[in-house]
Amino acid sequence: PTPPYLRWAESLHSLLDDQDGINLFRTFLKQEDCSDLLDFWFACSGFRKLEPNDSNEEKRLKLAKAIFKKYILDSNGIVSRQIKPATKTFIRDSVMRQQIDPAMFDQAQMEIQSMMEENTYPVFLKSDIYLEYT
């Protein structure tokens, strides 16, 4: 069978589908001071998984606000700098109007994912951290 660390090199998704891969990628991103990219990506996935229903409405609103505040509101943050202004406006308006949709972070997540696929992920595959691990 293919060792996990070789599968990590196939695609960003195969890396993010493996706990050890995530941990190593996070260590790398921390060194580069951009582990928020990864946390944001997973926060968006987790948010989408929360089914809207009467019992968790308050939680979903609180969580949407927390994600917005931590990653998007600060325009100097690594995540905020990589998200298009229109996407940020859409999220801000959704939070302010309390229109909390499971897909409200999808576009922002895609933008961060594209950035990782084009930038941090290929750099990770050439990094000492990854090469030493293999």
Partner: peptide, 20 residues
């Protein structure tokens, strides 16, 4: 009541793959 950080952390963990 969860603090915002706890809520975020829980959300991030919920999206992670489970250990195989």
């Amino acid at each position: 009541i969860d603090s915002e950080d706890d809520l975020l952390q829980e959300c991030i963990s919920s999206a992670m793959p489970k250990k195989k």
